[in-house]
Amino acid sequence: MTQVLLKENEGIDSALRRFKRQVSKAGILADIRYHRHFETPIEKRKRKAVAARHKRSFK
C-alpha cells in the first residue's frame, strides 16, 4: 500500500507529487486498468499474440 506522510513545512502539492510518483513506480494504475473489465479467454489469447508479435518485431 502506498503511503505518503507530510514532512514538516511541506505543502500538499509536493506531497501529492511524491504520492503520484510512488503510485506510478509501484504500477498500481496499470494494474487497475488491466483488471478493469473481465477478459474472456479468447481476448486474452489475442492480446498475448499481439504482444508477442510486437515483442518479436523489436528484436
Rank of each mutant, 00 (worst) to 15 (best):
M1Q: 02
A15Q: 03
T2D: 03
S24Y: 08
L29H: 07
I28N: 09
K55H: 09
E39M: 10
D31T: 14
K44Y: 02
T2V: 07
G11M: 00
G11C: 00
E8V: 02
E10V: 04
E8L: 00
F19Y: 12
L6M: 05
R21M: 10
R18Y: 05
K46N: 14
R47C: 08
R33G: 15
V23E: 07
Q22C: 07
F38T: 08
K55S: 08
I32A: 15
T40F: 07
H37R: 12
Y34L: 13
F38A: 10
S14K: 07
H54Y: 02
S57P: 00
K7C: 06
H37A: 10
E8Y: 10
K55Q: 06
E8D: 08
I32D: 14
I32K: 14
D31I: 09
S24E: 15
K46S: 15
R33P: 13
A30N: 13
L29D: 09
G27K: 10
R36L: 14
S24W: 09
E10H: 01
D31N: 14
R56D: 05
T2P: 03
T40D: 13
Q22R: 08
R36T: 12
K20P: 06
V4K: 05
S14P: 02
K55E: 06
E10D: 07
G27A: 10
E10G: 03
E8A: 05
D31Q: 13
Q3H: 01
Q22H: 06
R47S: 10
A26Y: 14
R21F: 15
R17I: 10
E39R: 09
R18D: 04
R45G: 09
A52F: 10
K48A: 10
K25H: 12
R36D: 09
I28P: 09
K7W: 03
A51P: 01
I12R: 05
R33F: 12
V23P: 04
R21G: 05
P41A: 07
K20F: 13
Q3K: 00
E10I: 03
T40S: 15
H37C: 08
R21S: 08
K59D: 01
